[in-house]
């Protein structure tokens, strides 16, 4: 997945100008910038929800991106485990949803609905879901929002272990998170 000189504007106001990035070959890229600088727009462009005003978004045919959105976007009527199970397939991800949630330190919250979980726990379910899908690249929009520092470190380590060779795009405000996910490149918007 690649962006080449991509620009985008909302109502004539430029949000992204000439942005390029290459997510091929298992690279880890971090996009940083203050609020309103187009970080989430970048993610929406990569996911194909919007089209660029100019430039190119290049995706290969069999590419299946996986995502942690800025909002958790969990299905509120399903338990934590069911939220993960609905995207999981054994062929693409070896660990079962139960095992994966245990890795995310949610082993005793499998049967809880999202509304019964704290914000940080919901975030970890969203991360588990993105991993369970087994997609590449892994697009992470502020994935550690609501997690304290020790938890961030542990979860980031798990993400690195479990994502295998997948490319990672990390969108964050915090440069420390880029270090945790061993990003090769930081793009500042």
């Amino acid at each position: 997945m690649e962006l080449r000189n991509v620009s985008f504007s909302y109502d004539g106001k430029p949000v992204l100008e000439n942005v390029s990035l290459d997510l091929s070959g298992g690279r880890h890229i971090c996009v940083m910038g203050e609020s309103g600088r187009g970080k989430t727009t970048l993610m929406r462009l990569l996911l194909g929800f919007i089209s660029p005003a100019s430039g190119e978004v290049i995706r290969s045919e069999n590419e299946r991106p996986s995502a942690v959105f800025q909002e958790d976007r969990l299905l509120p009527w399903f338990t934590a485990e069911r939220n993960v199970r609905e995207v999981w397939s054994k062929d693409r991800f070896a660990l079962s949803p139960k095992e994966l949630l245990s890795e995310m330190e949610l082993g005793d919250s499998l049967d809880k609905l999202p509304k019964e979980l704290s914000g940080g726990m919901q975030r970890r379910v969203a991360i588990a879901r993105a991993l369970a899908f087994g997609g590449d690249p892994l697009l992470l929009d502020e994935p550690f929002k609501g997690l304290d520092v020790p938890m961030r470190e542990r979860i980031a380590k798990k993400v690195l272990d479990l994502a295998g060779n997948a490319s990672i795009l990390l969108i964050t405000h915090d440069e420390y998170e880029a270090k945790l996910l061993k990003c090769d490149e930081i793009i500042r918007l």
Binding site: P65, S66, A67, F69, R73, L75, W77, F78, E86, R129
Partner: peptide
């Protein structure tokens, strides 16, 4: 709409989208 986008990203087939997102 955000759940529909989520279902599209995770490749839910139409029937699954109906069962897991629209019906509830």
């Amino acid at each position: 709409a955000q759940l529909i986008e989520m279902a599209n990203v995770f490749g839910f087939p139409k029937a699954k989208k109906l069962k897991c997102v629209y019906a509830p």
